[in-house]
Design a protein around this nucleic acid. Structure first.
Length: 276
DNA sequence: CACCCATCCTGTCGGC
DNA sequence: TGCCGACAGGATGGGT
């Protein structure tokens, strides 16, 4: 579910409210992708700092004498976070992590459990930090530009769509936004990464930023169940040009949108607007 | 290094 | 209705 826009929308929806809160208790549900990495009781009494984001990960800094560090959260395919001042709501079958604070309850709901909450003593000081080690540039980082993207794509024979999705050149574009960015740039998703010209790489870099910015403004995409931490849905799916539109007419030229499979993921594109 | 593929898990939807 | 397979927004880890 959550690509960069959804993760960032989620972050913005609770970061201010939880900043400065004190942890009162922690509840774990079924196992997530990785174990938490420390005894949950050790988090009690810690103070929550300013929540940040790196790629599709959220970083919740916690300060306490007992265990200074923080929590690295990932929403996987089906995760969402809720934050509410009313902590009385009973945990549902898919609520697998609760952080009860004096300002409210932060709760991870994740039916498929591909998500994760991992303790780290600090992003510089390893363990969970290695999860962030291979990540590409942030799309809104000034260093992410045409030349950077072109350099990243060079030497790769996989399709440009898959190279974009891999996240080691630029982070944040998942299946929806990779498809949308390629449409916006007019690039065939099947084109070998190393065959993307400099001018096209520049257009693609611009398109990635534009699509992610639009999606952020729209509050993300709610295909099935994405909601921010206060239960607000996104609306970008309404303006998607290709994602999920197989067989429907291209909004630009009317050609039927195609769906293909690349690396076991669906790719949607317009065969007329996206040539080379 | 680049790449392919299986894998984690549950829910939903379409076809028969 | 029920059953069954296909598919879903992600990313790792292992093998070639």
């Amino acid at each position: 579910m959550p690509e960069l826009p959804e993760v960032e929308v989620t972050r913005r929806s609770f970061a201010d409210a939880i900043c400065g809160a004190t942890v009162q208790s922690v509840r774990l549900g079924k196992p997530l992708r990785w174990p938490l990495g420390l005894e949950p009781q050790r988090l009690v009494g810690a103070r929550v700092g300013a929540t940040t984001r790196r790629g599709k990960y959220l970083w919740l800094p916690l300060s306490s004498q007992l265990a200074p560090g923080g929590l690295l959260l990932h929403l996987g395919m089906s995760g969402s976070l809720g934050f509410s001042a009313d902590a009385s709501a009973p945990a549902g079958a898919h609520d697998h992590f609760d952080l009860q604070t004096d300002r409210g309850l932060l709760r991870l709901n994740d039916p498929r459990r591909f998500g994760a909450v991992v303790w780290s003593p600090g992003l510089e000081a390893d363990p969970a930090a290695k999860l962030l080690a291979g990540l590409g540039l942030e799309p809104f980082d000034a260093r992410f530009d045409g030349p950077h993207l072109h350099a990243g794509l060079s030497g790769r024979r996989v399709a440009v769509k898959q190279a974009l999705l891999a996240g080691d050149i630029v982070v944040g574009a998942g299946n929806i936004y990779a498809c949308e960015a390629l449409f916006l740039a007019g690039i065939d998703p099947r084109l070998a990464a190393c065959k993307v010209s400099r001018p096209r790489a520049a257009r693609l870099a611009t398109a990635v930023r534009a699509v992610l910015a639009q999606a952020l403004e729209a509050g993300g995409s709610t295909l099935r169940d994405f909601k921010d931490a206060h239960g607000v849905a996104g609306s970008f799916q309404m303006q998607a040009q290709v994602y999920g539109r197989e067989g429907q007419p291209c909004r630009v030229c009317g050609t039927s949108i195609r769906r293909i499979v690349q690396g076991a993921r669906s790719t949607f594109f317009c065969p007329q607007c996206q040539k080379r």
